[in-house]
């Protein structure tokens, strides 16, 4: 492979890594929002996200035969998933975390792991009763066709993009667009509304925020609702991108997304997005290392295959945290005695 073919190949790899990265970013936001207000690693978030994916699957399945615009179906699926995941997250907070507000840190962490295990089995049982385990998304027609393919009206654009190595399917474009819209909405909510200011105040200091007249418990619930809704969106996006989910498939992306949140600086919203994008690209690059090794005539790179993808994410994390212990965009806090 010479440079002329290698460059578009790499661009393609990076672009599809970014698509993956947007999914991670939205999951990571769910972790980071909760961490921001409670300093709790919400291990159950991976199941909240799978719940969203399952609800999205059910909507697409029910609407499969119905004559309806595909994008309307997608919108319905997104809304249903947001509502379901958001409510589930509030329920989890109310039952499992709120009673432990003042307990040592390890206690709610263990509860979160427990909730995660319970939800995994519940999802498996509920879908199992309908004889399903692996849920394959029944997407509306047209979602899997190439973006600006040869037959479409914007074939010229597609041809240009293809020339520089970018070939996307419609659903991947949808993933990026939905992610961008959610990010913009979240940014507006957190930074430009009164509610957002309350969330930031609670994240900074819950007690003082309470003294200033903010209903801290209400804001925490709201944060869980937002985090859950983001989990629901990312679940549907995950379903779009990968096509199949099952009760246990939250674990891997959950770990990677949490790594992304930490990488960006846990508690920081832009950090979570940046971390997700970085990890998505790195994972995709690791996935093609053997091809690159062959292209560059470097022997031994061939042993690095896709099973190293997660390790790669962690090694990057280790390296960055060694030099920047609070993550890429995390605030460094000086410890006072």
């Amino acid at each position: 492979m010479d440079f002329a073919t290698l460059a578009p190949f790499l661009v393609g790899v990076v672009i599809s890594g970014l698509v993956l990265g947007f999914v991670y970013a939205i999951i990571a936001l769910g972790y980071t929002m909760v961490y921001g207000v409670l300093q709790l690693i919400n291990f159950a978030h991976s199941e909240v996200f799978v719940t969203g994916a399952v609800v999205g699957f059910e909507i697409f399945r029910v609407l499969n035969g119905v004559e309806m615009n595909g994008y309307l179906k997608l919108l319905l699926a997104l809304i249903a998933a947001m509502v379901a995941s958001g409510l589930l997250n509030i329920l989890i907070e109310r039952l499992a975390y709120r009673p432990l507000r003042n307990a040592p840190r390890l206690v709610p962490l263990i509860t979160a792991i427990g909730v995660s295990l319970i939800l995994q089995d519940l999802i498996r049982i509920i879908e199992g009763f309908q004889g399903r385990f692996d849920l394959t998304y029944q997407l509306p027609t047209g979602f899997s066709t190439p973006f600006c393919g040869p037959e479409s009206s914007c074939a010229g654009v597609g041809k240009f993009l293809g020339g520089i190595g970018i070939s996307l399917q419609i659903k991947e474009v949808i993933v990026v667009l939905v992610a961008l819209v959610s990010l913009a909405a979240l940014n507006y909510l957190v930074n430009f509304t009164k509610l957002g200011r309350a969330i930031r105040a609670v994240a900074q200091d819950r007690v003082t925020a309470g003294l200033m007249g903010i209903d801290a418990n209400g804001i925490i619930s709201l944060t869980f609702l937002i985090g859950g809704a983001l989990g629901g969106i990312s679940g549907v996006l995950f379903g779009l991108k990968f096509g199949t989910v099952n009760a246990y498939s939250g674990f891997d992306p959950g770990i990677v997304a949490f790594t992304a949140a930490v990488l960006g600086g846990i508690g920081s919203i832009p950090g979570a997005v940046l971390g997700g994008l970085v990890l998505g690209v790195i994972q995709n690059l690791i996935g093609v290392t053997n091809i690159l090794g062959g292209a560059l005539n470097i022997a031994n790179l061939g042993v690095i295959d896709s099973s190293y993808q997660r390790i790669g994410a962690f090694l990057v994390l280790v390296l960055i945290l060694i030099f920047k212990p609070t993550g890429l965009l995390g605030r460094s806090n000086v410890e006072k005695v």
């Binding site: 040592p104 930031r200 994240a203 609070t326 995390g330």
Partner: peptide
């Protein structure tokens, strides 16, 4: 006493920005 110290308010890691 129990493993990790109780959550102190001066220990915060980040905070939503």
């Amino acid at each position: 006493s129990p493993g990790v110290a109780t959550r102190a308010d001066n220990e915060r890691g980040g905070g939503t920005q």
